[in-house]
Nucleic acid binder design. Sequence first.
DNA 1: TTAACTATCTATAATCA
DNA 2: TTGATTATAGATAGTTA
Lengths: 174, 174
Amino acid sequence: MRPLGRTSKGRQHIDNKERRQVTFTKRRGGLFKKASELALLAGASIAVVVFSETNLAYAFGDPSVDAVLLSYGPVPGEDAEPAPVHSGGLGKDVDLEMLRQAVGETRAEVAAEKARMRGITAKILQAKAEGRFWWDVDVGEVGEAELPEFARALKELRAKLDGHANGRPPRQQQ
Amino acid sequence: MRPLGRTSKGRQHIDNKERRQVTFTKRRGGLFKKASELALLAGASIAVVVFSETNLAYAFGDPSVDAVLLSYGPVPGEDAEPAPVHSGGLGKDVDLEMLRQAVGETRAEVAAEKARMRGITAKILQAKAEGRFWWDVDVGEVGEAELPEFARALKELRAKLDGHANGRPPRQQQ
DNA sequence: TTAACTATCTATAATCA
DNA sequence: TTGATTATAGATAGTTA
C-alpha cells in the first residue's frame, strides 16, 4: 500500500481524477456495507444517500431509503406534527418543546458566538494543515474563552432532559 | 477481540440489549466517520440518517443533511435532470419524485427552523466539551442536523484548500 | 475501463480499569 | 455505568493483470 515509509499527512482530498473515482467506488461500497451491518447488528433503520462529484446518486436503505427519510421528516418542534417515529415510539412533544424554548432563549447570544467562530475557524485551518480532520480540534485547543456561555445553559438543559424524558430512564440519549 | 478461536458464523443481530446499544453507538460513529472520509477524499455529498432501536434519530451530512436531501439535483450552475439513483444493499430504487415531494413538503418548515439553528454551533462545542463528536448530538435535541455558520465556514475553508491544492475551482457547496 | 492482490491501515468486540 | 486497551477482523491504496 505505502511502499515508502513516509509519514502520512493525513487523508486529504485526492487530486487525481481516476484515483478519486476508484476511491469513491470502493469507499461507497464500504460505507453501504457498514450501514447494513449497523442495521443488522443493532436493529437500526438507516438511509444513506451519496452523490458523486459528477452528481450521480447512490442510495442505501434498511428497510428502505424512503421509509427512513419519511420518518426523519420535518423538523421537530415546529408547528407541524412531530415526525412520526417508528412503532412504539414514545411521544417526543414535551422534550422538543423544552428544547425549542431553550434554543430560543439563547438566540440573542448567537451573534457573539459567531464572532468567536472566526477564531475557531483558524484553529481548524491549523488542524487541516496538520493533516487532522477538523472535528479533531478539541476543546482545549479552542480555548475556554471561546466557549459560548450558553453552552452551559445547554448543559443544564441536558440535565433537565435526563430527569424528564417521557418516563424513560435517564441517559438514554447518551 | 475474539477470545475463543471460533470461526465467525457471520455477523448477526446482537441479542444482548446492552451490548447492542454499545455496538450501535460505536458503529454509528464509525459509519459517520467513513461518510466524512468519503466526502473528503472523493468530493462526495452525503446524507446519513440513522434511527436507533428506540427511534432516536441521528444524522450526518456533508455539506449537510438538508443540502444533500434537498439538493439532489445538479451542481448549481449546471442545468440537468435529477440524478438517477443507483440503489445499493437492501434498498430498492428510490422513487425520486416521491422523495422530492416528501422532502419538499417540509422545506418551509425546515427553513423556519433554520433561524433557530444558529445555536447549534454551541451544541457542537458542548458535545466536544463532553467528549462527544458533534454528530453525537441527537437530532431531536438540535432540531435538525443542520450546520449553519460553522459548517459554511468550514466548507469554504475546505474549498480554499482544495483549490490551492490542485488548482481547480472549488465545487459549489449547498 | 474493471478485477484481484496484499501490505498496511482502520474499526471494533471483548475485556479491563 | 463510561473510558481505555488491545487483539483480531475488516477495509482499502497502490499495484498488477
